[in-house]
Design a protein around this nucleic acid. Structure first.
Lengths: 361, 361
DNA sequence: GATAGGCCTGTAACCGGTTACATGGCTGAA
DNA sequence: TTCAGCCATGTAACCGGTTACAGGCCTATC
């Protein structure tokens, strides 16, 4: 047995050293260039040579070193995702969509989350910058322009639900329109005093939803009800509703700025023996999957969460590949999903089958 | 103006070429070695030189090329995570924990999901192998040994909720004990005919939960009620409960193999005008955050989902760093969280405050 | 039989970091 | 004054891929 394969065998047995393209070349009696060409598939290599090389590579369990590849190819086949938070089903849906997009484009997904403020997010961006070909960033708490500037154009960027995307590509929900639709619906159902439970005050999505809520009241010439502050989590919806009741300010309806808070609200109302929608109607925003399984099923503004994530990644990859040039600002219009939680003040639901919304699968 | 700085300025202006360590060295009038040492922080560099270099690097917005770094350092500072699915709040909790672990260890997280079967998961593993220092793999549908073998020891591996982890590190929930506790609780509350809604038949977690369910009945000398098959999603819980009712087999209680299916169940029961727990008691498994906000709050087996994810990543990083040697098999014992959904057949709850479980924040 | 031309394959430079080893300058003691 | 010794710094090899370019072989035609 010759020295080369002996060394390799020893190394493999002891798991000491990774198998390199040179090991494959040696074992297959060809040069590294031929191995590289055979593996990349698209070069001028004799079919016989190719299959021989592939067989050897398979036998040695060769996997190219991603770092070396990214060094010479100047790409990583990885998209970075920076999210502000990970609480609740909204984010599993979003990540599911991001993953679908990455899979469809054969990219890896580098995930970083829980960045509560812009400086943290920018730090995450810096550390990701050299590991990804493109970035999808959700920064609803801040100026999207800042996020883009932090990258100095080093990497293609797609903003998700961020304001002032400026020159960058952006995917966003029309929060104002969605909230307007929900609030109009509640007003049309005969509710006069409608409370609003908002998200964090520095969150732009929350701000836009509040604006929609107010505009609907202005339109209708109705004074907007009490406005409370939450944090988009169940607990804060629960706390806000509890506070409303303690104050003795029971409204006709409550519009929570997202479904998670609506869920917390619902729990507080039921705990207090208040019928929904009989005594107080309720609506949320997002249409997370559980919304239709609540009792009563929740009226909400349907956001195609996963779809947005998928499209954002796919678009980002196309930017990386140079298949697209001008930045796109795509706005998703939420679809009002009327369910039982917001049935008319008089008791009759607007729709015959309250448990199904816009979509039924 | 000399050629070097001119080129650099031009390139920077046009964003043409990335700034390399050689550019920094040139601008700072030192060698690349000095720059590298100054940036890595831990070498013998004059404080004056160091701060000068850092300043220049900052000015040029230098970020080291991760691929080049991983090539020479033989590490990526990245942990890969392979998950079977991403539906529901269980996974956002899990990912939240994984992210926390990665942050605490200053690692990046490479995520790949929706691998419904072992061959898909193994393909994902192969593509991740060269991009990560370690892997956390959740493969509840399959033989953990296979997953480990696929890697041939190339990368440290931590298995999550996988059976037969063999020689690999593993973190898992004691599904049998958790289900045993829930089923015992239901039996002790006086329920005789308890239906079980399982997960996918090839899912080992589902199998173990079913086994716990059966063992509790064996212990109590009670015949186990009808056993239905679900897929861990709300819809399947809804469908299973609907089917039960259609068949006219209304049980005393229903034990769903996870909370999402219990949620679907609850919806079906309420739709049919069946009181929970008055007519039928209900229990789930996992204690996802929404469980305590349902009406009635859901009795379930509390799994520290995020905590498991965090520990798995932290442990994986320690394996990578060689700080640990022998593989650990850590089993998390679920804590029975009794809430209103399983109140006694007679009507009185077992605990005074049914809406709070084991933990209250 | 000689040669042009095409196709397959090999050699070596390059991507951008890290670091072993070499080197030069400075301090302090003889 | 000289030289040992130490410390900050520089040079260049290396990590493991890709690919431009060089070169060798084989066929086809004159």
């Amino acid at each position: 047995m010759d020295a080369h394969s002996g060394d390799l065998d020893d190394d493999l047995c002891q798991g000491r050293r990774r198998v390199t393209i040179r090991d494959v070349a040696r074992a297959a009696n060809v040069s590294v260039a031929t191995v590289s060409r055979a593996l990349s598939g698209s070069e001028t290599v004799t079919p016989r040579t190719r299959s021989h090389v592939l067989q050897i590579a398979e036998k040695l369990d060769f996997v190219p070193h991603a770092g070396a590849q990214s060094l010479s190819l100047q790409r990583t086949d990885t998209i970075g995702v920076v999210l502000p938070d990970l609480h609740g089903e909204y984010f599993s849906e979003l990540i599911r969509g991001l993953d679908l997009g990455a899979r469809s484009m054969r990219q890896n997904l580098l995930l970083s989350a829980s960045h509560g403020d812009i400086s943290e997010a920018i730090a995450a961006l810096r550390s990701m910058r050299s590991r990804v070909d493109g970035l999808v960033v959700m920064a609803p708490f801040a100026d999207g322009e800042l996020v883009g500037d932090a990258l100095k154009g080093a990497v293609p960027l797609v903003l998700l639900n961020s304001a002032r995307s400026g020159s960058h590509a952006a995917f966003a929900v029309d929060n104002h329109a969605g909230a307007l639709a929900v609030a109009r619906h509640l007003l049309a159902a005969g509710h006069k005093k409608i409370a609003f439970i908002g998200g964090p005050p520095d969150n732009l999505e929350s701000q836009e939803r509040l604006r929609g809520f107010r505009d609907a009241h202005r339109e209708a010439g109705v004074k907007a009800g009490p406005i409370l502050r939450g944090n988009f989590r169940e607990e804060s919806g629960f706390a806000a509703a509890t506070l409303l009741l303690l104050r003795g300010e029971r409204p006709d309806a409550i519009f929570a700025a997202n479904d998670a808070m609506a869920l917390g609200c619902l729990h507080a109302l039921k705990n207090a023996g208040i019928a929904v929608p009989g005594d107080v109607a309720l609506a949320g925003f997002d249409d997370i999957p559980v919304a239709r399984f609540l009792d009563p099923p929740l009226t909400t503004a349907g956001v195609p969460i996963a779809e947005m994530g998928r499209e954002a990644v796919e678009y980002c990859v196309k930017l990386v590949r140079g298949e697209l040039t001008k930045p796109v600002h795509k706005v998703f219009a939420p679809a009002l999903a009327v369910r039982a939680s917001s049935a008319n003040k008089k008791g009759e639901a607007e729709r015959p089958s309250p448990s199904t919304g816009r979509v039924s699968s």
